[in-house]
């Protein structure tokens, strides 16, 4: 193991977390990310037993997950794989596909609501120009947020994840936390 100490996308040793009333915003630096693109004519593989999801959808299985990012293209997620060579693991699972390491290309922020699911669309209405159906539980989509390109994933009705380019992490955190702070008054 290297003795270099990694920093999170927000530039600290430990991932940041903040609470705004019923909303909790958490930086997640433990996600392994790798994109998987099918070669021409290739059938979809099933890395880690995942059935690669349909357009606009996400799926999870144990610590692994996948979400659709484009035609014949998915992002594969591995919880707890932030510092390993996740792309190599994915490649072993899908040797014929094109795999690109993306772990450090992105910063992932999870937002959870302790006041039920309604707070999630209330927050997202301040951030992304999408109808709530586009980020309903089980959905994943890419869109713009304050001129930054982000993935919006909805693993459950009380959680939403925003995954943006790593270099924008501070601006993304600012945008989400300002919006969340404006919903601080909503009772838990």
């Amino acid at each position: 193991m290297t003795d270099l100490i990694p920093l999170t996308a927000l530039g600290a040793v430990d991932a940041r977390t903040a609470r705004f009333g019923a909303l909790t915003l958490t930086e997640d630096d433990s996600l392994g990310l790798a994109s998987l693109t099918l070669r021409k004519g290739q059938a979809a593989p099933t890395p880690f037993g995942l059935t690669l999801p349909e357009v606009g959808a996400m799926t999870t299985s144990g610590p692994y997950g996948a979400f659709w990012t484009g035609a014949n293209q998915w992002m594969i997620i591995g919880a707890g794989q932030g510092t390993g060579d996740f792309a190599a693991l994915v490649h072993a699972e899908a040797p014929n596909a094109s795999i690109t390491e993306q772990t450090d290309g992105f910063a992932a922020f999870h937002i959870t609501s302790a006041a039920g699911p309604d707070l999630i669309p209330a927050l997202m209405a301040k951030l992304v120009n999408l109808p709530p159906a586009a980020y309903a539980p089980g959905h994943a989509t890419r869109t713009g947020l304050e001129h930054m390109t982000v993935f919006v994933l909805r693993p459950s009705d009380t959680q939403i994840s925003v995954i943006g380019m790593r270099s924008y992490a501070a601006s993304l955190w600012h945008a989400i936390s300002v919006a969340a702070a404006r919903l601080e008054h909503v009772p838990v």
Binding site: T37, R39, Q73, S98, E101, Q102, T103, D104, G105
Partner: peptide, 13 residues
């Protein structure tokens, strides 16, 4: 052509 393109600017320091 069989080509796959991914932008990885941010992934590598």
């Amino acid at each position: 052509l069989d080509v796959q393109l991914i932008s990885t600017t941010d992934a590598w320091a």
